[in-house]
Amino acid sequence: MKALRFYAPGDLRLEDVPEPQCGPGEVKLRVRNCSTCGTDVKIQHNGHQNLTPPRITGHEIAGEVVEVGADVNATHGTDWQVGDRAQVIAAVPCGECHECRKGWMAVCQNQTSVGYQYDGGFAEYMVVPREVLKVDGLNQIPDNVGFDEASAAEPLACAINAQELLGIEPGDSVVVFGAGPIGCLHIRIARGVYDVGPVYLVDVNAERLAMSADAVSPDETINAAEVDVVERVMELTDGRGADVVITATSANLTQEQAIAMAARNGRISFFGGLPKTDPTITCDSNVVHYRQLHIHGANGSAPAHNKRALEYIGTGQVPVKDLITRHVPLEKVLDAFDVVKNGEAIKVTVEP
């Protein structure tokens, strides 16, 4: 079969590899869609400490069951059948550590990941490992949801995790930094699930702002390369500041601006991680103290968030179909990475 394998930073090869064999505790999928994200591009250029080459990458996966291991259904109380349509979690909690027992599976201390420790979805076939099945991480795709939409459930799950931590209330004003696919998903969740008030989308790239604004229609776009973002948000909120600020970008400055623009009792999500070479910001602690701000980290998702993501897509609360603006065959997967890197599409999906 064809598969994209990582050998070293800058060395990804689309090559013929043996089709994986399904063990008794595993499920084999025919991959229908594996969508791409900025993390795939980072891996392409920098590798990852948890990724041992050669490794098939890709972690936003939806496919069709072609084989069910003999022990799977009896062990997990499931009823997987050949022909079922399934979505796969990316972050795999152990289910046994202190955090998992507390229900905090998104921050499992023993977390492994599809496309890192296990072969991923940039391939014609993949095997869902027993570790995924153990934590109920293989999900039935609703009948009215396409494979491409289901592959977007994984990043949607991460955004759901972040927003569930924020205590968002109807009518809240929301600022989202980052006009990429994650920023668009955050806007869709905030409106479709939490019924927020005005939403403002911030970026420094005018073309990306325009592209995303066409899709998700924020109440206003703010080009941070042209105006003082904090000043503009204060104007838009009559001097109060934003109730909720989400930084879906890896820029240090946005986190500092988020603190400066947050309203009293404002909630902030540091959704995008910062570069490991420059991970610090300047925080005016008195602003946090006197405005009684709530600053939350957000790390990936739990299996339950993936199920909610599929539910939201299926009910239409959080549409994603129109955000998938580029479909490419597996043979052009490296071209897809370039599209993501250059911000030429909102969401790009690969179809083996």
Rank of each mutant, 00 (worst) to 15 (best):
62 A>E: 13
62 A>D: 13
62 A>T: 11
62 A>R: 09
63 G>M: 14
63 G>K: 10
64 E>Y: 05
64 E>G: 04
65 V>D: 02
65 V>K: 00
65 V>Q: 00
65 V>G: 00
66 V>S: 02
67 E>L: 00
67 E>R: 03
67 E>C: 01
67 E>G: 00
68 V>T: 03
68 V>H: 07
69 G>K: 03
69 G>H: 07
69 G>W: 01
70 A>Y: 01
70 A>P: 02
70 A>S: 10
71 D>V: 06
71 D>T: 02
71 D>Y: 07
72 V>K: 01
72 V>S: 00
74 A>S: 15
75 T>C: 09
75 T>M: 15
77 G>A: 13
78 T>G: 05
79 D>H: 14
79 D>F: 13
80 W>L: 08
80 W>H: 05
81 Q>Y: 05
81 Q>V: 12
82 V>A: 04
82 V>G: 10
82 V>M: 10
82 V>E: 13
83 G>D: 05
83 G>Y: 05
84 D>M: 07
84 D>A: 10
84 D>W: 06
84 D>K: 04
84 D>N: 10
85 R>M: 11
86 A>N: 04
86 A>S: 10
86 A>M: 07
86 A>I: 03
86 A>G: 10
86 A>F: 07
87 Q>V: 15
87 Q>P: 15
87 Q>G: 15
87 Q>L: 15
87 Q>W: 07
88 V>R: 15
88 V>W: 14
89 I>P: 05
89 I>F: 04
89 I>L: 09
90 A>W: 03
90 A>M: 14
91 A>R: 14
91 A>N: 12
91 A>I: 14
91 A>H: 15
92 V>T: 04
92 V>W: 01
92 V>I: 09
92 V>R: 04
92 V>F: 03
93 P>R: 01
93 P>K: 07
93 P>H: 03
93 P>D: 04
93 P>Y: 03
94 C>Y: 01
94 C>I: 06
95 G>N: 06
95 G>T: 09
96 E>P: 07
97 C>M: 08
97 C>K: 02
98 H>G: 03
98 H>A: 13
99 E>I: 04
99 E>R: 05
99 E>Q: 09
100 C>F: 06
100 C>Y: 00
101 R>P: 07
101 R>G: 11
101 R>A: 14
101 R>L: 13
102 K>H: 04
102 K>I: 06
103 G>E: 00
104 W>F: 09
105 M>C: 14
105 M>G: 15
105 M>S: 15
105 M>I: 12
106 A>T: 06
107 V>T: 09
107 V>M: 05
107 V>R: 02
108 C>H: 00
108 C>S: 01
108 C>T: 04
109 Q>I: 15
109 Q>M: 11
109 Q>G: 14
109 Q>V: 15
110 N>V: 05
110 N>W: 04
110 N>D: 13
110 N>L: 05
110 N>F: 09
111 Q>M: 15
111 Q>D: 11
111 Q>A: 13
